[in-house]
Design a protein around this nucleic acid. Sequence first.
RNA 1: GCGGGUGUAGCUCAGUUGGUUAGAGUAUCGGCCUGUCACGCCGAGGGUCGCGGGUUCGAGUCCCGUCACUCGCGCCA
Length: 593
Amino acid sequence: MHAYRSHNCAALRAENVGESVRLSGWVHRKRDHGGVLFVDLRDHYGITQMVADEDSPALPVLEGLKLESVVTIDGDVKARDAEAVNPNLPTGDIEVFARSVSVQSRAEELPLPVAGEQEYPEDIRIKYRYIDLRRETMHRNIMLRSQVITSLRRRMTEQGFTEFQTPILAASSPEGARDFLVPSRMHPGTFYALPQAPQMFKQLLMVAGFDKYFQIAPCFRDEDLRADRSLEFYQLDFEMSFVTQEDVFNALEPVLAGCFEEFSGGKSVTPAGEFPRIPYKEAMLKYGTDKPDLRNPILISDVSRHFEKSGFGIFEKIVGSGGVVRAIPAPGTNEKSRKFFDEMNSWAQGEGFSGLGYVTRKQGEFGGPIAKNHTPERMQEIYDELGLGENDGLFFAAGKESLAAKLAGAARTRVAEQLELIEQDCFKFCWIVDFPMFEYDEDLKKIDFSHNPFSMPQGEMEALESKDPLDILAWQYDIVCNGYELSSGAIRNHRPDIMYKAFEIAGYSKEDVDTNFSGMIEAFKLGAPPHGGSAPGIDRIVMLLADEPNIREVIAFPMNQKGEDLMMGAPTPVSMKQLRELHIRTVEPPKSA
RNA sequence: GCGGGUGUAGCUCAGUUGGUUAGAGUAUCGGCCUGUCACGCCGAGGGUCGCGGGUUCGAGUCCCGUCACUCGCGCCA
């Protein structure tokens, strides 16, 4: 017989009754009745009940073990009496009578229990992650992650994509997020950068003629964390040659829709080929964000026109000075108290906005100061235009367009949450398309790239030469699911002349481009195919599929919100010897007074 | 950097208007228990109420500061 097990802890059934077996696992729970002791033995696969009584030498050994000790038990499979069958356990028809036990590892008292699904403080969970990962939900999440990655990989391969590896020690690039730097021992004073994404490498693989690339790519960005953001994360990074935006969409939609259908547990998924496409500008208007949650039925409208002349002076003033008024319907709020509306306003102020106006409507009767000053008749015009009914309230976000849109978007989400309008049990995908190529940077008082500088502008060179830069759109697209940005992608700019021109508009010289992007610009001068791709975030995909509120629940060994690994202690100081070898001297920041 | 929330036993939590010696469940330890499956029963140990300061006759409770964790803003290919 095998040294540790003849079966795993989920294997035994009624047909095994009478067999002599050997099982190994963790002591999940114990029920000690004095003369008879039950042990739930757990391994990766499941749980089997072990039983020992006074006839068995295993009894005193098992009695003395703390939970989570690891044991190997020799015993006999016995059928349970009809009334003792446990229908909640796949192995519940049988139990194993323990003849002997050998203790593989004696556990001390645990910092957090494994059995049960109680919530525990996250810092303790992360510090003792190997314990936390034994728990059913975490164990399942990590297995789901593996299965999702396997599925994505298979779907990509079946579409003719080839998996590549690209360097982890790469060159720092001035664009985008802050880099993680790695000092070079061999070249004093110089640094590698961990890739924020394998962006240039995958484009160079296209230049190299590989046609369809993908990778489960680790990415590193030294920015502050969020529930859906980690310092290190993984993307399904892919790139294709000789493609239009349409081809990229057709490649990715079946992969994502198929993967979500496979693991969604019956939740509905936007079918491949039917992902709505929403221009960026429309998204900012109707949803107040470039990552709209389409499960939320509320649509924002611009009602600035109605307030050009209004008894409600604040809005008239805002519109008169170039601002906008956006309306967020709150359907069926006739029964809602004034408190509901006032609390929305104080919430908006708490978020740093000047405030959120509102109109109430109860059985056709308008209420609130805006309706009174603007007059009910003209309010009715707005309601007619928006198609609102006689019991629908309306919130107003007013101000500079970018701020008003942002407030309206946040209010749209909050109203839907408060009114429980967000559709459950579904994954709604959409593309956000037609991102602007450039935007005006208020701080630097100059035009800059709004997203990826390597995207091809729509209209190519002609657009760059003839249009107002702020009107130029890019072949740049995001994929969004339930309000989470899953990926960003683009048809790339593979033409050096267009590249130089685009950078020129953003205020960079030919020399700047040649210096900072020498590898890529050189490559593009030596025969580059048109190409494009995208890179869905794998952690976020698994988070959505696992129905978890944050990304750490689907990462085996996550960092906390301050980027610390509480289990291994990273980041740590290093020895003087190590620093000397790297030609590095540290300077502590001054203690602020 | 900024704002919100949380912080009481190993873990999950309660703790009234500021008032006696800070409680419960669970875990741990001891005892009992031969059919449980969150076994049950009896008992015990276990506390810098995050930390520091203040107000008060008296602070877990009120005030100020600070730390930790977390959510968001800024930031983010």
